[in-house]
Design a protein around this nucleic acid. Structure first.
Lengths: 210, 210, 210, 210
DNA sequence: CACTAAACGAGACGGTACGTCGAGTCTTGGA
DNA sequence: TCCAAGACTCGACGTACCGTCTCGTTTAGTG
């Protein structure tokens, strides 16, 4: 949990030499630059240190691993999902999905999937990335869905967590498995098909174990 | 492409000492054993060689990287998805989904996600894993859906690729992001909610760029 | 020269906070304690600071290196050679030699040889150690020899520096090279054999280059 | 014991790739070159590797520490003490002593004392250095002394180990403590004074504890 | 009593080398 | 031709101290 928050913790540390903000920035900047030409996997603490003109120990003092640095580095520049001001919740979700796919098609998508990959080895990394990236956007969607339920646009019994999985799942599935492209056709067809499910209660209950 | 097929290619090699089947089996067996106690990431060619009583060069002669070995090793023991004999396509899909989730909850799930993670770095690994694991099951589902379309159970205009993404996407999403568990509640609620979408045409078209 | 004397210089510093005697003692005490369980080589400024509850900079303010601290720390507890009150100079020297060997057999011997070793790298360390430890004892011996020359016990032409080397040399040789132990047999046989040489003039002059 | 002999052990190793003699020579050569400009203490495995164009692991595979490399490196080029063909044993010893002092005045002396210093920390290093350098020369002297005893030139009851310590001790004492120089005056006066002691039995027995 | 100046603790900083590990390659001898 | 054994280069790992630095906090004597 504190893995990558050390940075954020504005521990009113009054004793000792204060942390060098310049070094911190240099590290994040170097990491950003390196991530444009390498994968998170090939990223190296040694290289970051060299590129940032910083000693390795300074890096190790503040970050537990390279993924944590990458998360911090990328966070600032990651485009946030804004709450869409659309006529309906359905329209807002659609809009968001289109933007997300567009976004993931590019370099951010590469980093996102590399960080998820990195997280498969280290639960803390996955948790940090999830909480600081994925859940932010997901919360926006959840709130939208809850609102939709309250206005009657969606079925009142809808499980909004499940709904989020149905909305985002296919996107991450394609992002990570890459069996098919994250193209415009996908981002347009997907919400159309999905939203049907959100409007109706889940009636087709064919239990596997009847 | 040739990443993991070297093994399979029964190139009618006639000259020289024939490949040692014993060595091949020992390598796969050792890998299987090691995968029970380590992640794919922490798996090491050196360790496999030692455990299998085989030289490193023998491994490098036949496999391009550890993921390829892991895929070969795991393939044999991965439970195959059988075509469910249910009354309806919906029921069959539901049954499959329940089994998949159950399956991914255990040790296989761990290996699957680790291999997908490994694939983010190496496209060949991802392709090999996808083609030899994921697509097999997906093809079963696609065929089911196509059959459902022909019988009128599903909308005839349904894009079956998209349908597969909607079915499997949420599962892999939870598997990899781990924001919520792959529990029974999920595996039961998911198909109920999703199947609605597959029965109807994607009517709710709120284009983001009208 | 000033290497380890900074401590002593009671520079009539009048302004500012006076040097903390408590810190100084704590450092020396910690060093003494650490030297019982580690070698001078493995001694660390960082460890001393921690053990003494003192900041590194306080140490660096007053000592140039760890050997200097070790010298200061050990000086107080090193047994001094007392001028023996024997019937003859020969007996006095013998007595001194026996005590020295006895002394060097124990933990002090270890520290002495480690400090000499440390001095091979840093001339200032060697000089400081030599002047504050070795030369003290040597001076006692030299004075004895000079006295012996004046009473006729030793040959008047004897070079007393050379004589000291002949007396002490074998002891340090065994201490440092450790080819043979510093045992009682040695400390008893050595003066017997050596004193012969000091009584006679160096007559056997077989020049290597005649 | 095997610390530095790994090199020598012509283990009739028949399996696997044979050790690279080229690498071995490059390492020793690089070490020799570096020792001309740095101390043994400042010598670095990393630097040796770089200079020799060899990987660190190759060095670590064959030597346990830098002192062991230095010993191997220096051994070949260290001038051996030849058995002097003089009229008498006394003359031969004198000649040897003069040469030794001359020898230790230069760069070899520096390395010798640095290796002895290094040995104070690591008993294996000291043992290796002692056995392969110091004892060789000492053995020559011991044999000479024994011969002198047999011809009646020296006292028959003379302990030749003790005699060696008396001969060499003062030299190493000056070498290591550096209170006085290893000059010609020293090397000429020393044997003259010492040989007196070797001709007579150790008669002046002033026991410290009568 | 306030002022000043040095010493103090804490601890961050850029460095350097450590010894280890694994990757992937190469070189033998034997099957 | 394959295989085992194992030596090779390469490069990054994470750690440990180095000696320096920048703080905020004592702790005297001086004005």
């Amino acid at each position: 949990m504190d893995a990558t928050e050390a940075t954020a913790t504005a521990t009113a540390r009054t004793r000792g030499r204060p942390r060098s903000e310049a070094a911190r920035q240099a590290i994040l900047e170097a990491t950003r630059a390196l991530l444009e030409v390498t994968t998170v996997r090939d990223l190296t603490i040694e290289t970051i240190a060299k590129q940032a003109g910083v000693s390795k120990s300074t890096i190790y003092r503040w970050w537990p691993n390279k993924a944590a640095i990458a998360i911090d580095a990328v966070e600032a520049i990651m485009p946030r999902s804004r709450l869409a001001k659309s006529k309906s919740v359905s329209a807002a979700l659609t809009e968001q999905l289109v933007l997300l796919v567009e976004h993931y098609r590019g370099p951010y998508g590469r980093i996102v999937k590399e960080l998820i990959a990195e997280g498969q080895t280290d639960p803390e990394v996955l948790a940090a990335f999830r909480d600081r990236f994925l859940l932010r956007r997901r919360t926006v969607a959840r709130d939208l869905i809850e609102y939709g339920k309250s206005t009657g646009e969606f079925d009142a019994a809808l499980n909004s967590d499940l709904a989020c999985d149905i909305i985002y799942g296919p996107v991450y599935y394609r992002l990570l498995v890459a069996h098919l492209p994250l193209d415009d056709e996908f981002s347009r067809a997907l919400p159309k098909q999905i939203l049907v499910a959100l409007h109706h209660p889940g009636i087709y209950g064919f239990s596997a174990h009847p």
